[in-house]
Amino acid sequence: MKNDGASAKVVLSAPDIGRTLARLAHEITEKNPDCSNLVLVGIITRGVPLAARLSEKIKEINGIEIPVGALDVTFYRDDLARKGPNLNASPTNITFDITGKTVILVDDVLFTGRSIRAAIDAIMDLGRPGKIQLAALLDRGHRELPIRADYIGKNIPTSRDERVMVKLREVDGEDAVFVTGAENG
């Protein structure tokens, strides 16, 4: 992947990501004073480590351990025919009952909103949550559906053809967010 080219711009460094997640954890506990009813569900791939980190930060704040699950939204997407299936993703792994819970969906980048639409459908097939909220590390705009996040780490204005690359140490060995210009060809 050509993410290290001259046009790559770091928009969040590793310490920035740590601070941003700490802030998001505080916002989550403020908005949900009764954290015992919360569950965090990360959207595969990079939403999952983000959800796990938010759970750790919330535990530091109030001592409550929030369960973390992983959600594969591939089979709920509406753009399968355009993107093609990903053969290597992990399966959904949610070991707790979500009925009646406040489910916080966690994703790295909020873009068109189509993944989130798919995630909401996927969650609804697993049970009937009391509430669904959305936390995203980044919001880059260009929504195609009426979807908004409850917790946003950072808004980054982008053009449609720019690429936002999120790297997390659990997946990529380092923490950083880059924006790269439109790729040639």
């Binding site: 594969d72 591939t74 089979f75 299936p85 053969l87 290597n88 993703a89 992990s90 399966p91 959904t92 792994n93």
Partner: peptide, 12 residues
């Protein structure tokens, strides 16, 4: 292997 990986996601 790709088919097996995909099938494993459907087990759940």
């Amino acid at each position: 292997i790709g088919l097996v990986n995909t099938a494993n996601r459907f087990v759940e």
